[in-house]
Write a protein that binds this DNA or RNA. Structure first.
Lengths: 188, 188
DNA sequence: AAGAGACGATAACAAAAGATAATAAATTCA
DNA sequence: TGAATTTATTATCTTTTGTTATCGTCTCTT
């Protein structure tokens, strides 16, 4: 279930299996909060089944910042890495099967991994890709209208359209649920 | 002039001076294009004096993505690092004094720096900070109204308000110049 | 199975922003 | 310095989006 991650790491199968023992398989119902905005994150997750969202409270309204699906790693990255209060709440949307790892255990893994010369390259490339991703996502906000952003979403992430409640998608697109509903009816 | 960078690197003064020889001091007039959107970036810059912007063409309209001022390093990061076509044009706003380094020379420096165990940590922290920066900037786009974004800009980056032509600021805020002018008159 | 609550569609109105054009102010530069 | 160009403001009209409210449907929960 976590096999697809193995390929990305410059590690032996044994080492990999050893590290995997740090992960705990958990099953949680829908609408479970895994981390509260303002708390310091102690855990990261990998999704075997289900989907989550990362959201924050803006004057009483909840705004979804990112969605996560099967085989993706989820954390409030800044909070987990730097032990600062999280800007986001992490919440399941569907019932989920997750693999959880504690920060302490992750640090053990990283400590060992750092012996490998390739590791930091790998971490760098991840950080770089994330940065690029945020940049492009941001770009589409400056460049496109809400309607265009919704059309892009249909093309690029159909999973989101199919599995995510519409009012979450609306805040993700930076518009109100009513506005999204209008956009949808015009597109028909 | 580039002294403020030295402190950030775990290097001897001699090594630093050696690397600095790769940089060429150039003076360019306002509205000089240092890199065209679509071209592969071969150079990075450090600003001694003046300011630049990074912009892209969106259906004939130019949209400013980022501003740079004195003592900042400027490049179309993805293009420079990965040798892919740049998403952005880099253009001076004021007459500028810059330090230019060619990608080949930068690679020589990085190759040597990689002997240092601290270097990758440092690069990682830079990538991480950039990612955090984009994320927060993006967040303000989802969360705030154009008026609020303009007020934030006054507080957080007064340089931009003071030195940058208003129509560039407008596109940076994701609105039209006319709309920005209205916002300004309401705030008075 | 019934009731409560959540969700999405739609309508009516208000507010904000875009488009366009005319004009004023500032700046470039010959 | 003065003319030409660029930039900013203002006004008008249109379009888009937000706000609020209503209604029907669906989904939990008990």
């Amino acid at each position: 279930m976590l096999d697809q991650f193995r390929d990305k790491f410059p590690l032996s199968k044994d080492k990999w299996d050893e590290y995997m023992r740090y992960y705990t398989r958990i099953e949680v119902p829908a609408h479970t909060i895994l981390l509260n905005e303002g708390d310091v994150s102690k855990n990261a997750f990998i999704i075997e089944k289900g989907c989550l969202r990362l959201w924050f409270n803006n004057n009483g309204k909840d705004i979804t910042f990112q969605f996560f699906f099967e085989n993706e790693a989820v954390s409030s990255a800044e909070s987990f890495n730097k032990s600062i209060p999280s800007l986001f709440t992490i919440e399941t949307i569907e019932p989920c099967i997750l693999y959880r790892i504690h920060k302490n255990d992750m640090e053990k893994i990283l400590k060992e991994l750092n012996e490998h010369p390739d590791t930091k390259e790998y971490l760098l490339s991840i950080a770089f890709e994330r940065q690029f991703h945020y940049m492009k996502h941001f770009l589409s906000f400056i460049r496109d209208t809400p309607t265009q952003r919704y059309i892009n979403l249909i093309k690029e992430k159909p999973q989101i359209i199919q599995r995510i409640p519409q009012h979450y998608i609306a805040s993700y697109l930076g518009i109100t649920p009513v506005s999204l509903s209008r956009i949808r009816s015009k597109l028909k």
